[in-house]
Design a protein around this nucleic acid. Structure first.
Lengths: 251, 251
DNA sequence: AGTTAGTGGAGAGAATCTCTCCGCTTCTGC
DNA sequence: GCAGAAGCGGAGAGATTCTCTCCACTAACT
């Protein structure tokens, strides 16, 4: 912990606030206590709703679930992209801190990976994903946060593999994309069969599959082996496409 | 196969057709070849769209993806429920046949389970789920189909456990609900990182977690242990609720 | 080749969603 | 406490999307 950058909330001066006081990008400059609390409620609700209904989910629903008026949501986040960006930043921040914490607390590299995945599941890292690619324009801040989360995760995995605790033929995508799958609520049935705990249970089973116990090779996994570099590549391609579309070269 | 009941298409007499020729519930009585083909295209498209966007997905989109006019969809399935019901029936039927086939082809009970899960993934069993509970009114036909699929699956699992090939503390829900999770396309990223193959890959990892190799207990799984009986119970409760709501006792 | 089941698409009406405006409430500094 | 300002909720206009029908045309069976 410690390096969290989410709600700066400098309680003395407020150097970062824009002169017009508009708090760009939904970031809290210096806000009243209730406003700050509502901002958090909105982010939490948005995270849940985006996961359930996708990034095009109605904003009304988010406000309703957060227990605030729709005007409050629009005041804090001027448009949908600002809100998505807020959710993504928050998720990235929390999980970056988690990687750090998990390394210190864990008994061994496998345990670290295991703990991280469980926390990521609770924090619904999935919410970051849909936005991660293709939805939100990545400025430097967001891109740094992304990179700052991806690399440590890959490192976590590599350490566990180096220690011989995780099978060597799995990769970044096998970790993250499974947690994202587990994040999503099961349709309908889910709510009646206690969803959250089931996801953790299934994660435990999956973790056993990741493990390399004594047996040397078991059997080989089919492609694709998805690495962090693959994500970076995709991100870059999308970014380029976006630039093309409405960016640099004006007719 | 052989016991398939999906498109009867008796090429001689057509005893099941309703006198008014309306083909109730979207079932094909005796149709022209192109109509039958379109019906199938619609079902496939509907399955995909329901999985991606949930059971409230716009019907326009389904028609578009099936490559037919919207009128064609409405002619075949008078309303949304009829369409959902059609998708569910089709999925149940295909998978019931699969259980049978898999038993015969498989090398051992674990292999049978493994094969079944992969086919279920390809057939997008997930499409059946959202409807399974809470969306569609279950008549006897649908309920029989459901039961006719659930029991064989549970049996498949029990056999593999009896043979000592699958850890004894997993249950029905650990099989089916994971396949359902894997069915759903990952948001955004997915399409760019070859989704379908990744799901099969992750399923293989999960299967390794289900396996009980030499080690006697590994570690215990957290609750909930979800059985087929749990599904039945939920289904019954929802059915009762539905009856209450607009059924027998008119205020 | 004639008959008829089947087809696509435009469009009316309904439902939903976005986003702003304005009067009221709650915090904060004194 | 009190004044002032920051924040709040919700109604509602306008735009968008979705449902479902009608009708002129096409292609499959006999």
């Amino acid at each position: 912990m410690g390096a969290a950058a989410d709600p700066p909330q400098t309680p003395g001066k407020t150097p970062g606030t824009t002169p017009d006081g508009s708090a760009p990008g939904g970031r809290p400059g210096r806000m009243r206590a209730d406003a700050l609390r509502n901002r958090r409620l909105i982010l939490d609700a948005a995270r849940d709703v985006f996961i359930e209904a996708g990034p095009d989910a109605p904003l009304d629903e988010i406000a309703r679930r957060a227990g605030v008026g729709i005007a409050t949501l629009y005041r804090r986040f001027p448009d949908r992209d600002a809100l998505i960006r807020g959710v993504v930043m928050h998720t990235f921040t929390v999980l970056s801190d988690t990687v750090q914490a998990v390394r210190e607390e864990a008994a061994d590299p496998f345990d670290a990976l295991r703990r991280f995945m469980h926390v990521a599941l609770d924090e619904k890292i999935g919410a970051a994903m849909p936005a991660l690619v293709g939805r939100v324009v990545f400025d430097d801040e967001l891109d740094n946060a992304r990179r700052g989360l991806g690399s440590p995760i890959e490192e976590l995995l590599r350490d566990a593999q180096a220690a011989g605790l995780v099978r060597p033929d799995v990769a970044f995508g096998d970790i993250t994309l499974m947690v994202i799958r587990l994040c999503r609520p099961l349709p309908a049935v889910a709510k009646l069969l206690v969803d959250d705990r089931l996801a953790h249970r299934q994660l435990d089973i999956y973790l056993d599959g990741l493990r390399s116990d004594g047996t040397p090779a078991r059997h080989s996994l089919p492609p694709p082996l998805v690495t962090l570099a693959d994500f970076d590549r995709i991100r870059a391609e999308l970014h380029a496409a976006h630039e093309d579309e409405n960016g640099s070269a004006p007719g």
